[in-house]
Design a protein around this nucleic acid. Structure first.
Length: 214
DNA sequence: CACATGATCGCCT
DNA sequence: GGCGATCATGTGG
């Protein structure tokens, strides 16, 4: 069989040592904005050849299904590519953009409600600087490709781990990136990020949003 | 630092 | 046939 693309060895980590735990299905079935906020500070992890590799998520975006012009499922579009967005909360939706970069999404809500959270950036340990600072780089660092499309985050080799309670985190909110075509939805405040992380994606790193004029 | 551009291909119209 | 839920590199100020 064809070997999967391996994760970057610098992302090796131990969920138990960090005191992390996995959420249940109900976590993912909540409102998409709530899930997007909760995932900032959580860990995206992959089991590869008996070891865990993972990175702490520092930036996410919510995509609100049929009513959201920026979402692939806008207007209820249901094509083979988008199909995983219609699955039950807690599944993975991976797609290819610009012919070369992959983007990973966590599906939310119930089966039939096509909403998801785009994982835009994550950070590894010291020594892996900005390895996953962008949606394409995040997938590249963990070796996530369309082969992983549709995986169940509660059963398969890609998982989400939540940090312990009282974990410090300052959450920033802005409009989403790269969706200027989306009409009014362009300005919805659906991007969430860790204000104290240096690994957010490169567009707005040194501060706030650029002015958006029509 | 602020743009501009090229690479590259699956998906949708 | 056109265009992205991107990124690295190159130009100019």
């Amino acid at each position: 069989m064809i070997p999967k693309k391996p994760p970057d060895p610098r992302l090796a980590f131990d969920p138990e040592e960090l005191g992390l735990s996995e959420p249940g299905r109900v976590f993912y079935r909540r409102g998409t904005v709530a899930v997007a906020r909760s995932l900032v500070g959580a860990y995206l992890a992959r089991r590869h050849r008996g070891r865990w590799y993972g990175a702490r998520i520092v930036e996410t975006e919510a995509y609100l299904g049929a009513r959201d012009r920026a979402a692939h499922s806008w207007g209820g579009r249901r094509t083979p590519r988008v199909e995983p967005m219609y699955s039950d909360g807690g599944h993975l939706y991976v797609f290819l953009v610009y012919g070369m970069h992959h983007c990973a999404n966590v599906v939310t809500r119930r089966e039939g409600v096509p909403e998801a959270v785009l994982l835009r950036a994550a950070e590894g340990p010291e020594g892996a600087p900005r390895l996953a600072a962008g949606p394409g780089k995040l997938c590249s660092a963990l070796g996530i490709t369309t082969r992983d499309n549709g995986l169940d985050l509660l059963a398969d080799a890609i998982r989400i781990f939540l940090p312990g309670r009282r974990t410090h985190r300052r959450l920033g909110v802005t409009p989403r990136i790269g969706i200027d075509y989306a009409g009014a939805a362009r300005d919805w405040p659906l991007r969430f990020y860790d204000k104290d992380s240096t690994s957010v994606s490169s567009h707005l790193r040194h501060g706030d949003i650029r002015s958006r004029r029509e």
